[in-house]
Computed example of a mutant assay.
Amino acid sequence: MKKIIYVFLVVILLPLLLFLIYLKVDVNAKIKKNNLINETYKYLEKYYYKNLDTNSLLTNLLSGLNNKYVGYLESGNKKYNHEYRLGFYFHYDYERFVFTVDFVIKNSEAYKKGIKPNDMIIEIDNNKIIDIGPYKAVKLLDSKEIVELTIIRKELDTPRKIILNKKYNTIPTAVFTKFNFNEENIGYIKINYFEQGNTVKEVSNILQEITLKKVKYLIIDLRYNLGGDFDEGLKVLSYFTDKKILGKIIYKNQSKIIYRESIPFFNNLNNIKKIILVNKFTVSTAEFFTQFFKENKLATVVGEKTYGKSELIGYFNLENGGTVFFPIGYFVSEKGKNISKTGIYPDIYVDDPNFGIFLDSKNLENDTVIKKALDFIFEYEKNKQYF
């Protein structure tokens, strides 16, 4: 009997006791980590000589993760496609405390008013960005239909004020035109971004039009496409393929297969030679789209190396109305390739010197990257037996 009790204590109770001790240590360690943050906050709140700005504290706390896809949005400051409303893309320069223009959308209101890449925005409606900070500055840009910007430029002697009216910058998510090259019908689709509920409808109408116009070659332009809604991108991609599995999403503790959306497949597109145009501003959903075409040899990719972002962003709403955003996972291609930080290398490399998005069909042949695509088509027609 004593032997049985001894075995019971050694075999069952001892491991259980050790596990409980480990569990307690692990829980205490987590509590200690949380207490460090709580303790710091309480001391700051009690002794800091200024009024404690919780929004700034949270912003800087998250910046400590050193991940550009982690951040905090104050109450009422949600993420919009404000670049398309304004007519240009920009980033915050932490050294100069200004918004620096990355590129300007061609034929937009900003383009017509003379805003150029590398312009530095120092004020919004006479509010200095250095005083109000980047988050409040973006909120100010989003909240008004008409905004006054003060910009500086190297060749300008004095700051220049520009008034922008956002209503003139309503940009479709996708546009289409057809032109003739060497007696061949060339279709051109520009997908500006993937917007939930809109892009799939616009692309569907375009693909039906392509069927009627007997297009032989199709150029899909994804330059300056910063992504947008991932599910919308999957729906658009499903128009071009009948494959059931498109890729996979990797989460922290699990993975999920990305299946083709249950929408019509335009099988007539199989007979059309496709070319995808990309550059360093082709990002996220647009990259998943491109990688699928490249891996499955559905298109020839022409342009620059893409940005390299596979992270999918999640949101957490706080009691104060603010939102914390952070990566919840990342996508990989059907063959398991993760393009994060590496991007996608095109089949045919060509520098893209043009800043802007082509919103009309004029002079497409003068675009450097499109000219390269047309040269490829010409060579293909001349030597198609070798392709």
Rank of each mutant, 00 (worst) to 15 (best):
Lys2Ala: 11
Tyr6Thr: 14
Phe8Ser: 11
Leu9Ser: 13
Val11Asn: 05
Leu13Asn: 05
Leu18Ile: 13
Leu20Glu: 09
Val27Ala: 14
Asn34Glu: 14
Tyr47Arg: 02
Tyr49Arg: 08
Asn51Thr: 08
Ser56Trp: 04
Leu57His: 04
Leu61Phe: 08
Leu62Gly: 08
Leu62Asn: 13
Val70Pro: 09
Tyr72Arg: 02
Ser75Leu: 05
Tyr80Ile: 04
Leu86Met: 11
Gly87Arg: 13
Tyr92Thr: 09
Phe99Asp: 00
Lys113Val: 08
Asn118Met: 02
Ile122Asp: 11
Asn126Tyr: 05
Tyr135Met: 15
Val138Ile: 15
Asp142Cys: 05
Lys144Met: 10
Ile151Met: 03
Thr173Phe: 07
Val175Asn: 12
Phe179Arg: 09
Phe181Ala: 09
Asn192Tyr: 04
Ile206His: 00
Ile210Cys: 02
Lys213Arg: 07
Asp221Cys: 07
Asp221Phe: 06
Arg223Leu: 04
Glu232Ala: 04
Phe240Pro: 05
Phe240Lys: 12
Asp242Phe: 03
Ile249Cys: 09
Ile249Val: 11
Lys256Val: 14
Arg260Trp: 00
Phe266Trp: 10
Val283Ser: 13
Gln291Ser: 13
Asn296His: 08
Thr300Asp: 07
Thr306Gly: 00
Tyr315Leu: 10
Ile328Gly: 13
Gly336Asp: 10
Pro346Ile: 10
Ile348Leu: 11
Asp351Cys: 10
Phe355Trp: 08
Ile377Glu: 01
Lys382Ile: 11
Lys382Tyr: 14
